[in-house]
Structures are given as structure tokens and as C-alpha cells.
Simulated assay, not measured.
Amino acid sequence: MRALLPGLALTFALTYANPLPAEDIAEAIEHPMVQRYPGSEIRWQTIENYRPYRVATGPVTGYRTIGDWADTEGRVTRTFYRYQGTERDFAEIYLNYLKAFEDEGFEILGKGLSDDRKGVEIGTRQWLEVYLAENPFTKQGEAGTMAAGTSSSGGAGAFVATKDRAAGRVWVVVNVEQHAEDYVGTLIDIVEVEAAQTGLVSVDAEAIGRDLTEKGRVVLDGIEFGFDSADLLPSSDAALQAVVTHMMAHPEQNFYVVGHTDAKGSFDYNARLSTDRAGAVVEALVTRFGVARERLQSHGVGPLVPVFSNVSEAGRDRNRRVELVERP
């Protein structure tokens, strides 16, 4: 069984007895979300504030083809680490990174570990070549050795992970390869997608149906109120219309409309505000859009069900929301 280093984590210092001194390239920046495997050096890096990026989430399905992709865009940080030595191999480094991301609550969308790099699964040579062809390096450097190897090279592994944060979704792709007997290379690509600005995105009927099917609830993006009030703003009409469209298409479904707030202020105030806001949504759907009142029940839960920490403004903004919850 491969060894896991104690203490390996994404946002905490890594511990390892007598780590090799790091000899990073000039101007290299350690991404604050991921700290390196002990003894590794940054040998190549690019940071682009905005670029499209394709995340491969499935195996190779044909000639130079991967069937499953997630197309995204945002700030892209690509960092290549070199571990020089024979104390650890590619699989141990791969498993430590994988466990660290799992422990931090990332959803692992796909993973694979191969001792000979053959086949079509995630982590094989074929998969890496197609993945890099879709996301080519924008400058030359040591990262270009990822798909090469030497006569003493060994296996490789890769995994794809994602997590929804208050500041926006983040995607991570980690590739680890035994480049030579005493050289393990690790390429970590991080794509940070900024959260949408309030008021620019509203839910549509298709999204409502998809989230209700998968989760039994949907956040009604685009529902907006006046500051510290339950007065619906005109910008909420598109989201309200999407609810009506879905309800007309599914006359057998009934719903709770649930208001949520952040944790600023007293509990009693937030509980009352969330109840009033949920009631305002129901009233608008009934009186302005013709939805039967018996199909909707409003409730407020104040700050009791946060989706992110209330410490940051980004987290508080995501916690202030109205949800549609399917009612049996």
C-alpha cells in the first residue's frame, strides 16, 4: 500500500523530515490554495487573469478524443513542480494530493493511476496528450516534459476536482508523472471562476427543473429585494417568470418558498426578514402571475441554513437567497 504523508493539506503547512531545499524559478508564486509536496521545486508557471479552459472529466473515447468535458473560463494558474530524489515515487505524491483535496471537500470528478501509462483512462499517456492539446502551454519550459519521459520513466496519475466557494467555483486538475527514476513531475492547473455579479444572472425554467430533479430544491438567482426590506425589485421579474413557466409545465408539483438571510444583525430580525421575503415572492407569483395560492407555502429560516461562511461579504451575499423546495 502506498504511503500517505501525515499533515498533507491544501491550506496548511506540509511536514516532512528533512525536505530538500526548494530552488524555484524566478518570480514563482505558490498558489494560496495548494501548498507543494515537501521537497518539490517550482520549475515552470503561468498565471493568466482570464482565459477559456477545458476540463476533461472522462476517458479517451476515440482517436485523440475525450467524450466528457466541462468548458469553463477564469483566472488560470498552471504550476509545474519537480521532485528530485528516490525517497518518494509518483503514486505516493499523487495519493497525498488526492487525499488533501478530498479532505478539503472537493468533489472528485474523475481520477486514474497507471503504472505503465497505457490505456484510455484518466491519467494515461493518451488522456494527457488530448488534455494538453485542448489546453496548450502558452510558454515554453520544463512542464513540456509531462508527456515525454525518459528511458527510466514510470507511471502516472491524474485527477480532476471542483468545489463551489463563496468567491466562485474553482476547478483543479492534477497530473503526476514518474519522469525518471529520481524525478517526479507534478502539473497543477487551477481555474478560478468569479461569482456572477448580483443582478446579472437569473434562473431559467430549465435550470429550475434540473436542480429540482437532482437536489429537490433550487436557488432562485435573480430574485432581488430593496436593502433590508422585503420589497421585490423589478429586476426579479425574469426569475419569477421562470418559476411560473416551470410550474405551468408541471401542474402536479407544489412548493415551499424559503427565505434565507446572512447572520448580520439579530436572529429575530433575520428570521422576520426571511419570512417576509418568502411571503413577498409567493404574493407576487399569486397576484401578478396567476399561480394558484394553494400550490405555494412561504417560510423563513433566517441565518439557520448558510451555504458559505458569514465571515466574508462574498459568503454573506451567497447566503442571502430565496429557494424553491419541492413539497410532497
Rank of each mutant, 00 (worst) to 15 (best):
D211G: 04
D182E: 04
M248Y: 04
I29F: 10
S274D: 01
G155L: 04
L240P: 06
M247K: 00
V184T: 04
L98C: 05
T61R: 13
P19H: 01
A278W: 09
V191Y: 12
P19Y: 07
L187T: 09
L109P: 14
G119M: 14
L20S: 15
I66F: 08
Y53S: 06
A230C: 02
N49W: 09
D276S: 14
I93R: 02
K264L: 14
Y131W: 15
Q45G: 06
R51G: 14
T162D: 10
G265A: 05
E206M: 05
L109V: 10
E48T: 07
S152V: 04
W69F: 15
Q297Y: 13
V60C: 13
R293V: 03
D116G: 08
V322A: 06
G154H: 05
Q84W: 01
A17R: 14
G67A: 15
D68Y: 10
V173W: 11
P19V: 07
I42G: 03
S312C: 00
R36A: 14
T261G: 05
F12K: 12
S152N: 08
D317N: 12
E104Q: 14
S312Y: 10
W69E: 10
M247I: 04
V203H: 03
R295L: 15
L212Q: 09
D103W: 05
L10T: 14
V218P: 00
A195I: 05
S114W: 14
R288E: 15
Q126L: 15
T138W: 10
Y131D: 11
G168V: 12
A180L: 00
V282N: 02
V244L: 13
G290R: 00
P136N: 09
V219T: 06
D68S: 11
F12D: 15
Y83N: 01
L187K: 13
R117F: 13
Q178H: 06
F308A: 09
A292G: 09
V176F: 00
V174C: 08
G39N: 03
R88A: 08
S152H: 05
V301R: 09
G302K: 13
F267T: 07
L212I: 09
R327K: 07
R321I: 10
M247L: 08
E206H: 01
E104S: 15
V301K: 07
V243I: 10
S114A: 06
P6R: 02
R295C: 13
Y81T: 12
M33K: 12
R78M: 11
E102H: 01
P306Q: 04
V322Q: 10
L273F: 11
R321L: 00
G315H: 02
L304F: 12
P328M: 04
W127L: 09
D182Q: 03
D164S: 08
G58I: 04
P52V: 00
G279F: 01
R43H: 07
G315Q: 04
I47G: 02
N135E: 01
E177W: 13
L113C: 02
V322H: 06
H299W: 09
A205N: 02
P21F: 03
L128R: 08
T150R: 10
D204G: 03
G185F: 14
L128K: 10
G157I: 05
F289Q: 12
D204A: 00
Q178D: 02
Y94V: 06
V305G: 06
T245H: 08
V311G: 08
G157P: 09
M248D: 15
G226T: 01
